[in-house]
Design a binder for these strands. Structure first.
Lengths: 225, 225
DNA sequence: CATTTTCCTTTCATTCATTGTAAGTGTTTT
DNA sequence: AAAACACTTACAATGAATGAAAGGAAAATG
């Protein structure tokens, strides 16, 4: 059963939405405390997020942006703000659909199931700058090409994507590769990193993996590409 | 550069759309002869199709349905028909977006780039009943799981998906596996089929691969699942 | 500027999944 | 019942991915 999180402050509206989706066979969770909205959503691990923009205290835009940075859930913005600039802004932040209230039940349900269909099989995809990585198979999507990375290279890339612009310690990387933080062989890690760099270069993904002396590595988006 | 095909009968509207998208940096093709619309679209191999519903002689719905059955291009329906039932119908046929004329340039462009973003890395996905197959890597997506099929199994499944409910001859299958229609070994095909069946069963995809005596095989959707 | 430490690259042997071969078993059709 | 066709299983060969080893660069240190 597909799970939907509803972020809406107006109680009457919230309850109506909840009923609509429950009747349609969805599992529904509502967010009450908007200052922790992001955490609550992440914890619920929904298939889709229904987001109002006018929330007391917090900016709906801000929630949308952070959601899209830290997760891959589809976001449907449902709001009474019918300004074109709001709509464009929402799309720029990564929103997947934008509907204005009042909205007919049928339209809402149609758009939701449409989004869910679009996102089928997309739940495991990590977003990198200019490419996508399937975290289960390590299939890499870039433009219209796709390649399956060798497991070790995939594991390394996954770690880097999960810690964008942070430093990944050698322990973390070894842990990911062999399940233990102790060096099996300090060099094996090295070799696998070299290989990852090589395949990324071959694919035209310009990323720099820089060493952090004595600690580990960090990946930063490169200028070109 | 992303390529868009515009299917619109009203000349003034068509030209305006063409200009809007060209200015926005897209490559544009327009369809003139609507009785061959489908063929023209398929031949153009666009990244997105902009489709009007009110076409002389042909049903836009019909084009939409066939497009979605035979390709994976995203379809944006842009029409003056603002009936709710038209919208729902379009969505049921697999349309990805539905906008009513008149429509502001900004909104149209935003929705288009939104769709294109959503379809990144999705261009190679073949749709099967309940699952998706990447035709380059043979990564199989089912529910929230993904698996990379061995090449031979992937090739076989691809053939079956491209000829849904038709019979795939042994020649076709051998051709796909070894590039030649002559039997390398009649049995090798057999073994690979067995393996495909086994993995599909393990993944919970209920498909039946039935032999057609002396000719080949056909895949049919199964009752369960 | 020389030395040490740290990091990187290349080559080679091993390992493991995938594939084809072979032999034998089941199932239709005539 | 016999023949033709379809399926399964086990095993050996192949090839990609991996780790080991050794030597070369680059950065820090005195």
């Amino acid at each position: 059963m597909k799970k939907i999180v509803i972020v809406e402050d107006e109680p009457f509206m919230r309850e109506e939405l909840e009923q609509i989706f429950q009747k349609a066979g969805y599992s529904v969770t509502t967010v009450a405390d908007f200052s922790y909205a992001l955490q609550e959503i992440m914890q619920a691990v929904p298939n889709l997020v229904l987001l109002d923009l006018n929330l007391p205290g917090v900016s709906g835009f801000q929630i949308c942006r952070e959601l899209k940075q830290k997760s891959t859930f589809p976001v449907l913005v449902l709001t009474s703000r019918d300004q074109m600039k709001d709509e464009l802004h929402a799309f720029n932040l990564g929103a997947d659909e934008y509907l204005t209230k009042p909205c007919r039940k049928e339209r809402l349900l149609a758009r939701v199931s449409n989004l869910l269909r679009r996102y089928e099989g997309r739940t495991n995809l990590l977003e990198g700058p200019g490419f996508l990585l399937d975290e289960q198979t390590y299939t890499l999507y870039i433009h219209d090409k796709s390649v399956v990375l060798p497991k070790n290279q995939g594991k390394l890339l996954e770690i880097f994507l999960r810690h964008r612009d942070e430093t990944a310690t050698r322990d973390m990387l070894c842990e990911a590769l062999w399940g233990t933080a102790e060096y099996i062989d300090e060099n094996a890690l090295q070799v696998n990193l070299t290989r990852l760099k090589k395949t990324m270069k071959k694919l035209g993904i310009c990323q720099r993996i820089e060493p952090v002396r004595g600690i580990g590595y960090r990946m930063t988006a490169d200028a070109e590409e």
